[in-house]
Write a protein that binds this DNA or RNA. Sequence first.
DNA 1: CGGATGGATGGCCACGTGGCCATTTGTGCT
DNA 2: AGCACAAATGGCCACGTGGCCATCCATCCG
Lengths: 339, 339
Amino acid sequence: MATIKDVARRAGVSPTTAKRAIREPELLAKDTLARVRHAIDELGYVPDAVAGALRRGRTQTVGLIVGNVLEAFFARLSRTISKQLHQAGYSVLIADNEYRTDLELQALQMLHSQRAAGIILRSGYGASNLGYLQRLRANGTAIVEIDYHYPNSPFSWVMLDNAGAVVQGVKHLAALGHRRIAALGAYDPERNPEDRSLSFERALADVGLRPRAEYRRVITLTESEAYDLTRDLLALPEPPTAILSLTGNQGAGAYRAIREAGLTVPRDVSLVTFDNYSWTQLVEPQIDVIEQPVDDMALASIEILLDLMDRSGPAAEPARRVFPARLLVRGSSGPPPLD
Amino acid sequence: MATIKDVARRAGVSPTTAKRAIREPELLAKDTLARVRHAIDELGYVPDAVAGALRRGRTQTVGLIVGNVLEAFFARLSRTISKQLHQAGYSVLIADNEYRTDLELQALQMLHSQRAAGIILRSGYGASNLGYLQRLRANGTAIVEIDYHYPNSPFSWVMLDNAGAVVQGVKHLAALGHRRIAALGAYDPERNPEDRSLSFERALADVGLRPRAEYRRVITLTESEAYDLTRDLLALPEPPTAILSLTGNQGAGAYRAIREAGLTVPRDVSLVTFDNYSWTQLVEPQIDVIEQPVDDMALASIEILLDLMDRSGPAAEPARRVFPARLLVRGSSGPPPLD
DNA sequence: CGGATGGATGGCCACGTGGCCATTTGTGCT
DNA sequence: AGCACAAATGGCCACGTGGCCATCCATCCG
């Protein structure tokens, strides 16, 4: 592959002059510049970002670790983030952690060895990688958490107002008269201290309801486990009259289980789910969703990350941004059936 | 960030000995090895892949350029490919081309400057980047096309048997009695010589039908343009009685347009779409789909790519793999309505 | 007891770039 | 013409690694 020396030789100048055609063209005489540019075109020379990164001690690479790109939320996040970062001159390395910290650690090690300048992370569950992340940060890596953050996270983060979102959903259902509301999520405060699960029982209390132990189960954030759980919930002697799904994928599983049980939404059971996924507008009636401002969150994370990466000096206070969710009522919730 | 010299100093050995603890541990005395390993742990040393790549003249990075990760097909492709490549020790740089060759060129230039060892590409439409790709290949970059390939492509590629897939769909609909079948796709043989669009009219001829000029329109591969087109088709004096959507996203748009026109599937109009997306099993009746073996295609592309990257010697014949599609009949097609 | 053998360790350099300093060439002014 | 000064160009080195060659030393055998 052509190097700057090849360009220099072809243009009949020194390597130093040749490289100036790229970085400081204003320093060159007009015809020298033209000659070098011509040589660059002829050779198809493109500077070696690897060598540049080594020399500068700093790559133009950012790592993005999400839960699972198959989920539309993360697909959208990935797309917006990588598009913006490309425009800012960065390459984006993507990895899924499948919500598991062991896989996440592998991804972090990869980003470490690649000397990524920054990392945008949706951390998983399990033994925390906090220590590893802190070492990376001490080495100068910019870190932003998104969609989830460590308890008392020392990093910058961008979050949905999960508590507010859950309250919106619960209030909406309670106002329709529901008293048996189940949430599909991961009820595991030890291992998965998630805002949404934790907020749910508080939100119930706000509207004067008690959580029911038999609705509680620790599941992963997948469609299939949500399907299983919903099926089981509906088979209970006192099944929920309303289901609040805490992620979009789980919502699809819940809907499928409801339909396969021969039940109709919202006559037999009401359904509200996080994430405004396209299927929610294709089924009938359309599904009530709690929409996240995904692009806004993505843009905020980039803004913070670019700022951290530009800043060479002392660390500033971590930046924290919280975005409100929006409940879109479409027809999948109604009054509970009469017993 | 710690370097191998720091490790060496801490372990009281030379840098050469220290690095052998990583690459050739069998050469070291047992206690030396232990000492160096201890120093590596203490310092959290991870080899600098940037320096390694420069020295070796070869990165462990692969670029993946797809149409749009928001589409489930590409999300799935990305996920399977990146997972496998991570296991093989490669990092994956992802970029969307939005089916546009101008954006694709930017992505290629980025991968060029990053000196990616290989590229898996779903090329877009517009002025071809064939020349650029050939220069990259001449410089040693492994290239595999997937889901689409240049006419007479000099590269290895992995494709769906698009012609066979379209024939399956058309035959299925024709057998039910449909004579007015429309395909939603990009009828632009000059700029977008796509197998599926091109095959459609041949498939019609196979079953003794003529294409109808008024069903033809060049659209992009998006849900919204498919929605618009479907709406217009249904408003024709002689609307199609069956619609074959050539991509999954377009299928969702078509379904939405059909429902919003107050029509019922399959009573008023039959619908078959490429891609077994999750919404097709959530609506009622479930949608007939032409399923692509996405994971198989992803794995094949990786196999070819790894082979190309390992091979240092002279170029072998390009590898070509074609995968069959599978028609899943579920209930969204039936006999045409009586006029 | 001396030399051969091989196990263990160390020194050195280049990969392509970017930053810094040095040198050459050109221009204007007295 | 001579000088000052700026414009234009060039030389050199280090970034961290991996490959190659060199050196050191203990052991074994004749």
